[in-house]
Design a protein around this nucleic acid. Structure first.
Lengths: 162, 162
DNA sequence: TATTGTTATACTCTATAACTATA
DNA sequence: TATAGTTATAGAGTATAACAATA
């Protein structure tokens, strides 16, 4: 723990077990693979994530979706336009609050999502080939845990309020 | 396991323990936090990843860096221009192969990297607050394992050769 | 001829601000 | 006044192609 920057020999304590750089790296690799594989259909990574959420949560408002995905509302518009244009989701007004749109996965969207999941499984098999089944289950658990708390409990990043 | 897309009740088997969507989600959250925190210095997530690699591997050619980070060579140029402009890395010709640039982290860059790591630690503490220390060590192990094999063993994504 | 680095370029992703319609 | 959704726009991320210098 020297604070002298001249000591170049201490490269190792520059490596402090951080996971964020690795997550960013994996995300870039994965996105490239996913879009190379399903890109022919005009679908991209973000579309799949949104459809996945709709499959899990059922019909939701755009506000719910943007909050859950931590996306900007204006991005969600174009994203859903794409999906709706392909007939993968439907949008309708909420009768009880006509400002809201209720977004729902269509049966075509569900079928498409299933097909895409098989593609993603293939990519994951390759990307995580060094991990055992137990490892992968554990990875799933850890990431679920992080997302479950990290993105919901504390929305505003650096306010210090959390 | 029905293959009838009409069966909407089977939402749960659409959720097949995939980690890629979560990794992408976490990456987006993390990048936003990181850039909100260190953005004032003009540094971005990619800069930190590159500096981190230089700290770990020592002086490297641009080709080495682009391969390790799975980035496009043309992106690396601008990235290193930024770092060099801030005095965080140095570039010099390799005497034994004058096509190559040898890139090296400067002592200023090392100091800056140390300071940034403390910021990133803070973000990770918050993002992974639901995980125990053991969990986080395990997460680090699993991601390292995936990157160690996934990105090096198989560079070309969908050739089927891997 | 192949490789390293570079420039130019275009397309995607993400964020901000201003607007509308509803509440 | 506040909220859900939309539009327009700009900045950052990423990929491709063409090029110069060197091997």
């Amino acid at each position: 723990m020297t604070d002298n920057p001249e000591v170049v020999g201490s490269a190792l304590d520059l490596e402090s077990r951080q996971v964020l750089p690795m997550i960013e790296h994996l995300a870039r690799l994965a996105r490239r693979d996913v879009e190379a594989m399903v890109g022919e259909k005009g679908l991209r990574s973000r579309h799949l994530v949104a459809m996945r959420l709709l499959a899990l949560e059922g019909p939701s408002s755009q506000r719910d979706l943007t909050d859950a995905l931590s996306l900007d509302p204006s991005n969600m518009v174009g994203l859903l336009n794409d999906l709706e244009g392909h007939g993968l989701v439907t949008r309708r007004r909420d009768p009880s609050d006509r400002r809201r749109h209720i977004v729902e996965l269509s049966s075509l969207g569900e079928a498409e999502l299933r097909a895409t999941y098989r593609d993603i499984d293939t990519i994951e098999d390759q990307l995580f080939s060094a991990l055992t089944e137990t490892d992968r289950a554990e990875l799933y658990r850890l990431l679920s845990l992080a997302i479950g708390s990290g993105s919901q409990a504390c929305d505003e990043p650096p306010t210090g309020e959390c």
